[in-house]
């Protein structure tokens, strides 16, 4: 549906290099990366809003590389909504109807149901300047969908919202995608958004794609240290492997199967670490002894900073289990991780 081949863009302070992505028809695809990684540049290249220096972009098998944005049949929603401040809600939504290839009639007939779905009816005559963040984003979505685009481009649509609006818009996005089957390319820096909404994802870093795959695959099997950290594997260490044994600087752990020779890192999530006073019950014996440096309460869970020799390890455990075991800072304890929860890369 969207095919990006060997895309390169050179801006004054930034460059995208040989980006290749394919988004299937009807797919919700997330492009994930930290601020400044080039996500929006990719999105705006697809939209035709910046000129590319190389490569090809096609939408529905049409080569659109040289087409201006108005001929690409796309809808775009920015994080700050970018509503037209001089127009009412209704005028915003109807803005693009006159350019629709089938004239005003066809999409206009769909408009009431769109307005209904996004609960915009009471707002139609209002000016957009005093709407809440959630309302603005609903208007922006209606405006983008009103022209029946072939692809919907979302640029961090949830980032500028308060937490409760964020959930509302997130659910609406999911609902719209399920109802209409529209192809979506969403840019985000928040992996949890991708997990909730996305089917496939790509992680981008400094203008290059690091990994592409299903959201689960990226989450569970990151291929590079950067992606591993990005999906929450805070504990990431260089390791030497001998059979199933991973030798780290200050301790060793057993992994499920002997890894390939090119592997040189071991990673695991803080949530996978279990703590105990006893020397053998935690992690089925697969663990190491360490000292609690700091306990940082985070509500239901607590972040526990551990140190084994000079290796810092982060664990997230329930605050209740900490209390139950009476663990405190400076205690020497045993930390364990299931072999199946260790990621080799």
């Amino acid at each position: 549906m969207i095919r990006i081949e060997d895309l390169s863009v050179r801006l004054s302070t930034f460059r995208l290099e040989s980006i290749c992505l394919a988004v299937a028809a009807g797919e919700f695809f997330c492009l994930i990366g930290p601020t400044g990684a080039g996500k929006t540049v990719v999105l705006e290249s697809v939209a035709g809003l910046i000129s590319v220096d190389g490569g090809r972009i096609s939408i529905s098998s049409r080569d659109v590389t040289g087409l201006p944005p108005e001929h690409r049949r796309i809808g775009i929603v920015y994080q700050d909504s970018a509503l037209f401040p001089h127009l009412t809600v209704e005028q915003n939504i109807r803005f693009g109807l006159r350019y629709h290839p089938e004239g005003n009639r066809f999409p206009a007939a769909r408009l009431p149901s769109l307005v209904e779905q996004l609960a915009l009816k009471p707002l139609l005559k209002r000016s957009v300047t005093h709407l809440s963040g959630g309302e603005k984003q609903r208007v922006a979505l209606a405006r983008a969908l009103s022209v029946e685009p072939e692809v919907l481009l979302l640029d961090e649509p949830l980032s500028a919202l308060d937490p409760n609006f964020r959930e509302e818009i997130r659910d609406i996005l999911k609902q719209i995608h399920e109802d209409t089957g529209i192809t979506v390319l969403m840019v985000t820096h928040d992996f949890s958004e991708a997990q909730y909404l996305g089917q496939r994802a790509a992680v981008i870093r400094e203008g290059k794609i690091e990994q592409t795959g299903t959201v689960e695959a990226v989450f569970n099997a990151p291929e590079t240290p950067f992606v591993a950290r990005f999906v929450g594997m805070k504990n990431l260490f260089p390791a030497r492997f001998q059979g199933c044994r991973a030798e780290l600087e200050n301790f060793s752990l057993l992994v499920d199967a002997p890894p390939g020779e090119e592997k040189s890192c071991l990673a695991f999530r803080p949530e996978e670490v279990r703590l105990s006073r006893a020397g053998d019950s935690a992690g089925a014996g697969n663990g190491f002894s360490c000292r609690i440096e700091k306990i940082l309460p985070r509500g239901v869970l607590s972040e526990v900073r551990l140190r084994a020799g000079n290796t810092p390890i982060t664990a997230m455990v329930t605050t209740a289990s900490l209390c139950r075991q009476g663990l405190a800072e400076n205690d020497r304890i045993f930390a364990g991780v299931d072999a199946a929860r260790l990621h080799v890369l």
Partner: peptide
Amino acid sequence: RTENVSRSLGASA
């Protein structure tokens, strides 16, 4: 971005 959105909705420059 408002100009960008306008373009994406089909309006010429």
